[in-house]
Design a protein around this nucleic acid. Structure first.
Lengths: 208, 208
DNA sequence: GTCTATAGGTGGATAGAC
DNA sequence: GTCTATCCACCTATAGAC
C-alpha cells in the first residue's frame, strides 16, 4: 500500500502546465516538449499519461468545466442577491485574466476549426452549461426585480458570455486588466446591476 | 512595357489566401505549404514575395486595416443618422462572419503572445484606430440625441469592439451567424439604437 | 512510470539554376 | 519570378529497456 496519489500526481501536474500553455498561447502553439521541459520529464512520459494531444485537450476541457461548474455552485450557495451573484460570476473571469490567462474555452474557440471533433464538442458543452446557468440566474434576477433587461434571459446570457470573452481577449492584448474591469462593469450595468459601490456600500446609483 | 500588374498580382493573391487562412485557423495553424498548395506555386515563390512569416503577417494586418478604415470612411460619407452608421459599422463584422471568417485582428489577439513584436504593434494599432473612430461616432451621436448611453464614449467603444469580437468568436464555434446578429442587436440597443425595424420602418420601440 | 532512442513527418527558410 | 533541391529544427508518436 502506498500513499496513493489522487488520480496520479503527475497527470494533474501535466494538466496544470498544459492548461496554462493553452490559455496563454493557444492549442496549436505549444508542444509536448514545452510541457516536458517545464516538468523535467521526457516527452515519452507525457504520452504514457495522455496518449495523444487530442486526448490531453479533452481532459483539459473536462477538468476546466468541472472547476467552472463548481465555482457556479459556490455562487448559488453563497448569499447575496442577483447582483452579487452576477458580480461573482464576472469575478471568475477576472481571476483568470489577473493570472495572465485567457479563458481556456475562449482560446479554444479561436482554434476551433483546427480542433479534433471530440474537443469541439467539449468546447461547446462548456459554453452551453455556462449559458444555461447564466440564463437561469438572469431570469430569477429579473423575476425578483433585482435585474432589469429586455428580451430573453438566454439571449442576454449569450451576449454577456461573448462580451466577457471578447473583453478578455482585447484586455490581454493591451496587457490592461483595468480595461476588462471597466468593460465588465458596463455590461453588468446594462443588465441592471448598479455600478460597483466601493464594496457593500450604497445601493442605488447610475444604472444605464 | 507590360500590362503592369497592380503591385504584383501574385503578392495580392498570396495575401488573399493567407488572410483567409489566418482568419479561419489562426496564425500558428497555417503554413507556407498551405498557401503554396492553394496557389499552385512552390514555397520558395512565397519567400520571394514575403521573406518571412512575420513580414507576411505584418503586410496582412496593414492591408486589413487599410480596407477597414476605407469602410469607415464610406460610412462617414454615406447619409443616415448615427443609428444607421452604427448599424453599418456592425455590418462590417457581419459580412466577415458570413464569409465564415473571424475578424483578422480578433484572431490575432488570441495568438497575441506568440506573435513577433512588429505584429503585436500592428494588431494594437488596428484596435486603436477602430476604437477612435467608434468613440467619435458615439460621441457625436449622443450629442445629437440620436444615441443614449452613460459613461465615456471611448469606454463604450471599447466595450462594443470587444463584445463584437467575442460574439463573432462564439457564433463561429456554433456555426450560427444568427447568434451574432441577435447579440449585435442587443449591444446596439444598449447604446440607444432602436431594435431593427424591418428596414426603414417604425422608429421608437423597446430601447433597453 | 519513466527513460533512451528513433521513426516519419512538417515547419520556416535558403542556394542556385532557369 | 518561379523553380528544384536541400537544410535543420521541431513536431507527434512509438518501441523497448529499466
Amino acid at each position: 500500500m502506498r500513499p496513493l496519489a489522487a488520480v496520479s500526481d503527475t497527470s494533474a501536474r501535466i494538466l496544470d502546465i498544459a492548461e496554462r500553455l493553452v490559455q496563454t498561447r493557444g492549442f496549436n502553439a505549444f508542444s509536448y516538449a514545452d510541457i516536458a521541459a517545464a516538468l523535467h520529464v521526457t516527452k515519452a512520459t507525457l504520452h504514457y499519461h495522455f496518449p495523444t494531444k487530442a486526448v490531453l485537450g479533452e481532459r483539459l476541457i473536462d477538468r476546466y468545466q468541472t472547476g467552472f461548474l463548481a465555482a457556479l455552485v459556490r455562487i448559488d450557495k453563497g448569499g447575496g442577491d442577483s447582483c452579487a451573484k452576477l458580480k461573482a460570476y464576472v469575478g471568475i473571469y477576472t481571476d483568470v485574466l489577473d493570472d495572465d490567462r485567457m479563458c481556456l474555452c475562449g482560446m479554444l474557440a479561436a482554434d476551433y476549426l483546427t480542433l479534433p471533433p471530440t474537443m469541439r464538442e467539449a468546447v461547446r458543452r462548456f459554453f452551453d452549461a455556462n449559458e444555461t446557468w447564466l440564463g437561469e440566474a438572469l431570469q430569477r434576477g429579473r423575476d425578483k426585480n433585482e435585474l432589469a433587461f429586455t428580451g430573453s434571459p438566454v439571449e442576454a446570457a449569450q451576449v454577456l458570455v461573448g462580451a466577457l470573452e471578447g473583453a478578455m481577449l482585447l484586455a490581454r492584448s493591451y496587457g490592461d486588466a483595468v480595461r476588462f474591469r471597466s468593460a465588465a462593469c458596463r455590461l453588468l450595468a446594462d443588465l441592471g446591476v448598479p455600478a460597483h459601490a466601493p464594496d457593500i456600500a450604497g445601493r442605488e446609483s447610475h444604472v444605464a
